[in-house]
Write a protein that binds this DNA or RNA. Structure first.
Lengths: 236, 236
DNA sequence: GGTCGTCAAGAGCAGTGCTCTCATTTTCTC
DNA sequence: GAGAAAATGAGAGCACTGCTCTTGACGACC
């Protein structure tokens, strides 16, 4: 019967969820390198070998956590964006930036897993690509919608990007339709600036130097918003 | 006798150097997490416990590698800077950027060790602070000298940084004397943008999207140079 | 009712960081 | 120069890791 089969599959799905939950807890305390299948099994009252029925290897468990992480940050960014007035493009950009930073500060080890050095020997499988780009859709949409609304006025200070970059810009336009190569390049500057700032704060490069980190972050993200060409004030 | 004492100390120093060299080779192939004291000992024809006479723990060996890495990147940056005409501030900035990127691409695991996620359980000791800031001196000097030469003209696009950041700016001015809070903030934007860009390229965030990475990097760094206010052309 | 797939359990392998003891060698001191 | 002291290398051992293999039990399906 199909119902009984799903009964078994349901307990299996439940166990998988429980394993990833416990693994995430371990990740939060010990970091990616300290994630131990045996420890997770102990917490579940299982013998270590039984875990391998659900995750064939440690890397597979890591992959599951990575996908969850990308989705979590994607969701946080989506919520932050939808909480703003649609025509407040700079406000939306700042909200997204703060969402990324707050999530990173709340889940430092998960952020490190997603955006820090790759775990040695671990090769990210293709399953992670989709969730990894989830938040970039929001990011690109803000810039794209500002462009469509005629509210994107990049200051005249950068030279035009070289011709050779136009094919790459075309790829980026999949999440940022309609904008020029120049805006794409500026968008990447802001994008890498955002994550550079968060990673520096998280990985300790600001230690003993920067104390008002939230204020500096906000100011710098505002500066990057203006670099892209987002308007200083919402509305007309 | 003093000479005989140095005899023993000399072989000790030689062994320490050999250990770090082999460890660096392992680091280059297996990454920080895969660095094994036993494997290093095997390569040296030693028994594993003997290594502990020279490095009390794996973390101490990592610390030595980190210090070496910071010094290596600092030296690379210094060489890149001194290869430029002193009044070509934008050229010096670009040279430094390329030096950072090239070193990172040549030593990906070492870059990850320095600027990626912290190794789990590893706490950077104070010995690393000095070497860690070595390259920032070069970085700050470029901006500072451009300012003194009256060739720093930041485009009017960012709001003034909030008052609360002035104490942090004061700290940064230790390596960037004379410049305003606004320039300090812009300098941090460019600084984090540089490392964000390099880390994204190195950690695979550009996979399947950006192909002309050197060109994009050069263009974006030029864009950041103009954000700081570095002049478009050298000389007057 | 019999068969087959799924599962938990346990033993075991090869590897890790690290500690301890013991013998040897080198250095320092009287 | 003889003896004490320090430094060094070797080996065994502990507790831990990821992972594999085998065994026996349970549940689902024909």
């Amino acid at each position: 019967m199909n119902a009984s089969r799903t009964a078994r599959e349901r307990v299996r799905a439940e166990l998988i969820r429980e394993i990833t939950d416990i693994a995430r807890r371990h990740l939060a305390t010990d970091g990616a390198g300290g994630l131990s299948l045996r420890a997770v099994a102990r917490d579940m009252g299982m013998v270590s070998s039984a875990i391998y029925r659900y995750f064939p290897s440690r890397d597979d468990l890591l992959t599951a956590l990575i996908i969850d992480g990308y989705n979590a940050i994607g969701e946080a960014v989506e919520i932050a964006d939808t909480g703003c007035a649609r025509d407040d493009f700079t406000g939306r950009w700042l909200a997204v930036c703060h969402a990324v930073r707050t999530w990173a500060l709340d889940h430092p080890h998960e952020h490190a897993l997603l955006y820090g050095s790759p775990v040695p020997g671990y090769q990210a499988p293709e399953d992670t690509i989709g969730p990894a780009t989830r938040y970039t859709v929001v990011y690109g949409r803000i810039i794209s919608e500002a462009h469509v609304a005629g509210r994107l006025t990049p200051p005249d200070m950068c030279p035009a990007p070289p011709e050779v970059l136009s094919s790459d810009a075309e790829a980026v336009r999949q999440v940022m339709p309609g904008v020029s190569d120049d805006v794409v390049a500026r968008g990447i500057v802001a994008w890498t600036g955002l994550f550079g700032m968060v990673s520096f704060e998280l990985f300790g490069q600001f230690n003993n130097v920067i104390t008002h980190r939230r204020e500096l972050f906000e100011h710098n993200m505002l500066c990057l918003a203006h670099l892209i060409g987002l308007p200083p004030t919402p509305g007309a």
